[in-house]
Computed example of a mutant assay.
Amino acid sequence: MKRLALGLAMGACFAAFGTVAGGEPAAAASAQSRKVIVDDDGFGIAQWLLLQAPDVDVLGIAVVSGDVWRDEGVAHALRGVEIAHRTDVPVLKGAVYPLLNSEKLTDRWESLYGKLVWKGAWMRQWVEPTAQSTPPYHAADVVPDLPEGNPTTKASDESAVLFMIRKVHEFPGQVTIIATGPMTDLALAQRLDPSFAGLAKELVYMGGSFNPRQVRDDVAAAQFAREFENSPRREFNFRFDPEAASIVLRAPWKRIVSVPADPSTATELTPAFLHRLAAANPAFADAVRKKEPGFPLWDEIAAAVWLDPKLITRSEDLYVDVNSQFGAGYGDTLSWRPGYQPDMDEQKEVVVRTVDVPKMEQAIVDLLSRKLPAGK
C-alpha cells in the first residue's frame, strides 16, 4: 500500500511538473493527445489502429485471459508492438483467471443448459463443423510459438491493474479505457480503488449482445453469430467473467460506450480485406497475411468508433448489467430503457447498434497505411 501511494504521488508530481520526450511540457502534450489504455485478451488490428492514429497517446496495453490465456496474449501484444515499431508502449500482465467462473464451472453449466459456441482459453473443439480452425488447447502457463513470430521484448514488471489505477490518478479525467476482452482487470481495479472509474474519462468496451439482426448465411463470420439466433443475449466477453462485468458496469464512470456483438455480425475479416490491409503498409504485411480469415471485426469496431464516432449509424441509450446468477442465463446481457432500470447502480450507456461498414473498413486501411517513425 505504501508503494502504491508513493507511486500515485510521484505520478501526480510528474504530471504537474514533468516533461515528455523532446523537452515538451507534460501539460502541453496532454492537451494535444487523446490518452487511452487498452485492456484486451490478446492483440490484433484494433491495437494497431490506436498505435497508428494521430493525436492518440496509448499509455499501455494490459492483457487479461479470455480468447487465450493471459501469458499467450502478452506474447501476442509484445510481438504486436514490435511489428508496429512501438516498443515504447508498455505491455502489462493482467488477471490469469476470472473472479469466480472457471473451466470446471463452464463444463458443469454446459451439462445442464447446453453447449457454448465459443469458450476462449477453455476451447477444446467446435461443436459442429466450422470454417475457423480450433485454437490449440493448453494450460494457462504455456505459451505456444506465435504465427507472427515470437517477441524478443519483455512485459512490464508492473501489474496491469496497478498501472491503470496509477494512470487515472496521474491524468484525472483524461484517460479512456478501451476494454475489448473480459473485464476482470477493470473489476479488480475498481475494487482496489473505488475512485478508479470516476477518475477515468470514459469506458469504451466490446462486450454483451442485445439482439443482433444482421446475421448473414453467406459469410463465414455468420458461424460466430449462429448462437444469437437462439441465445441473443449471450456474448463471450461477458460470459467468461460475468461477475467482473457486473462490477464494472455498475461503477460510476463519467461515460460508457458499449460496442456489443450486434454491429459485428455485419462484418468479416475476409481474404479480400486481409489483402487490402497487407497491401496498406509493408511493416504489417507479413503479420496480416498470417491472420486467419472468417472472423467478425469485434475489437476493430470498438477502436474505430472511438477514433471516429461518425462511423456509428444507429445507437441508443440503455442501462446495462450482466446476469451473474449461475443458471441458464449466466453471463447474459441485461438492459433497460431509461426509467425501467432497477436502480442498483446500473449506468446509462451509449449502445452502438449499427456502423457504416464500408467507411469503417476504409478507415482501418487508411490508418494502417500511415508511415510512422520508430517510437511515433
Rank of each mutant, 00 (worst) to 15 (best):
W118C: 02
G149S: 12
D217M: 07
R108E: 14
Y330D: 01
D157V: 12
W69D: 12
P90Q: 06
G327F: 09
Y137G: 01
E227I: 13
E292A: 10
K371E: 15
R314Y: 11
T106E: 13
T130E: 11
G7K: 11
Q362I: 04
Y319S: 03
L59N: 01
R239H: 14
V143I: 15
L105N: 10
D71E: 13
A245T: 12
V305N: 00
T267W: 08
Q223H: 04
D141P: 00
A363R: 09
F210N: 03
T184Q: 01
A26E: 12
V117Q: 03
P338Y: 09
E128F: 09
V320H: 05
R289K: 15
T153S: 12
Y340N: 14
Q341I: 09
V161C: 02
L49A: 02
E158A: 07
K35D: 11
R255Q: 15
R353T: 14
P54A: 06
H275C: 06
V219H: 02
E110L: 08
D343M: 09
W306V: 09
D88V: 04
A28V: 15
P25C: 09
A225S: 10
R3S: 15
L203R: 08
A12L: 07
V288W: 08
L8T: 01
W109Y: 14
R216A: 09
W48A: 11
R86D: 01
T19V: 14
A77G: 09
K115N: 08
F171S: 01
E346H: 10
W118M: 08
F284L: 07
Q32C: 06
V36E: 03
H76C: 13
R226L: 04
D88C: 03
R166F: 02
V91M: 04
A302S: 15
N150T: 02
D262H: 05
F228L: 06
I83G: 02
V96T: 15
M344I: 13
F238P: 00
V64H: 02
E346V: 08
R124Y: 02
Y97R: 08
S335C: 06
K35S: 10
E72I: 06
L162D: 13
L311S: 05
W109L: 05
L269F: 14
V168M: 03
A62Q: 13
P271C: 13
L8V: 05
R353H: 14
V74D: 06
E128P: 00
R34F: 07
F295E: 10
W306R: 06
A131G: 15
L367Q: 10
G181C: 03
K35I: 01
A5K: 14
S159K: 02
A225M: 01
R276S: 11
D55T: 05
A121C: 13
F228T: 05
K291E: 08
I37M: 11
A160Y: 07
P296E: 09
D193F: 06
V127M: 03
L203I: 07
R108Y: 14
Q325I: 14
A62T: 15
V38Y: 04
P263A: 04
E158Q: 13
Q214W: 11
A283W: 15
A220F: 01
I301P: 00
K348M: 13
V350W: 04
S246Q: 13
L318D: 07
D317R: 15
W122Q: 03
L249S: 05
W298R: 02
D57F: 10
S324K: 07
L50H: 09
F43W: 07
H275M: 10
R289F: 06
A302L: 09
G181S: 13
